[in-house]
Amino acid sequence: MTFSNDTERLQAAVEDTIQKHWKAYLIEGILLLVLGFGAILLPLLASLTITILLGWLFLISGVAGLAFSFWARKGPGFWWSLISAIIAVIAGIVLIAQPVQGAVTLTLVIGVYFLAEGVATIMYALQHRGRLSERWGWMLAAGVLDILVAFIIISGWPGTAAWAIGLLVGINLVFGGTSLIAMALAARNKA
């Protein structure tokens, strides 16, 4: 009983916050939509930008990891923490210094990820088709689509590095922006 009341109060608070700040969600959605279409139209630039951003994230997290490792050098796992931080720093430096080669490598990793995700999704759909009723077909289709995307990326690699990361991130941004815009407009209409 208490859990249900708490959940309902939390949902009401979230809905109230979204209604109060629907303009912020709308602006964020529009920004994501614009960035998404930009990434789709200029996938190479987006791929290189994302690779450099990822490089900076690795570098910053690696430097923070080094600082923490030395700060807690008496703690358990010091050497593993230190090695992990050094690898992150090296990966960051490589991605920042050589973004084209980094994008090529990341594209291959994404292709392999889509392949593994597709196989896992198909296996899950087939294993649970009796329990998922008609939805298992959608899962099966999603797995097949993942494998198709993986085949396109891997079979054209390294040439696909010029567009794969930027295009995939752009599509994700367009869908995310569209959903935020829809949510904001629905909240505005409710208010």
Results as ranks from 00 to 15, higher is better:
3 F>T: 11
4 S>Q: 11
5 N>G: 11
5 N>L: 14
8 E>L: 10
8 E>K: 11
9 R>I: 04
10 L>S: 10
10 L>C: 04
10 L>R: 11
14 V>D: 05
17 T>H: 13
17 T>P: 00
19 Q>N: 15
23 K>C: 01
25 Y>S: 13
27 I>R: 04
28 E>N: 11
29 G>I: 08
29 G>K: 07
30 I>A: 15
30 I>L: 15
32 L>P: 01
35 L>C: 14
36 G>L: 09
43 P>K: 02
43 P>Y: 02
44 L>H: 10
45 L>E: 14
45 L>F: 09
45 L>P: 00
49 T>E: 13
51 T>P: 10
51 T>Q: 11
54 L>D: 05
55 G>K: 11
57 L>S: 05
58 F>V: 00
63 V>R: 01
68 F>W: 07
70 F>H: 08
71 W>H: 13
72 A>S: 10
73 R>S: 11
74 K>L: 06
74 K>N: 11
76 P>E: 14
78 F>A: 00
78 F>E: 01
79 W>M: 15
79 W>Q: 14
80 W>G: 09
82 L>S: 04
83 I>K: 07
87 I>T: 03
89 V>M: 06
90 I>G: 02
90 I>M: 04
91 A>D: 03
91 A>C: 10
91 A>I: 07
91 A>H: 00
91 A>Q: 04
93 I>T: 10
94 V>C: 06
95 L>P: 02
97 A>F: 10
97 A>M: 09
101 Q>H: 08
102 G>L: 03
102 G>D: 04
103 A>Q: 02
107 T>P: 05
107 T>V: 03
108 L>Y: 08
110 I>K: 00
110 I>P: 02
111 G>M: 05
111 G>R: 04
113 Y>W: 08
116 A>K: 08
116 A>L: 15
117 E>N: 07
117 E>K: 09
126 L>Y: 02
126 L>K: 07
131 R>V: 02
133 S>L: 01
133 S>T: 02
133 S>I: 00
138 W>L: 14
138 W>K: 13
138 W>N: 12
138 W>A: 13
140 L>Y: 00
141 A>H: 04
142 A>G: 01
144 V>N: 04
144 V>C: 08
146 D>R: 02
148 L>G: 13
148 L>W: 10
148 L>K: 05
152 I>V: 12
154 I>C: 13
155 S>Y: 09
155 S>I: 00
156 G>M: 05
156 G>V: 07
161 A>I: 03
161 A>C: 05
161 A>S: 14
164 A>N: 06
164 A>Y: 03
168 L>W: 09
169 V>K: 08
169 V>F: 14
174 V>S: 09
175 F>G: 00
175 F>D: 00
175 F>L: 12
175 F>E: 01
175 F>C: 03
176 G>I: 00
176 G>L: 15
176 G>E: 13
178 T>I: 09
178 T>S: 15
180 L>R: 14
182 A>K: 10
182 A>D: 04
183 M>A: 10
183 M>I: 11
183 M>P: 03
184 A>H: 03
184 A>M: 04
184 A>G: 05
186 A>N: 13
187 A>H: 00
190 K>C: 02
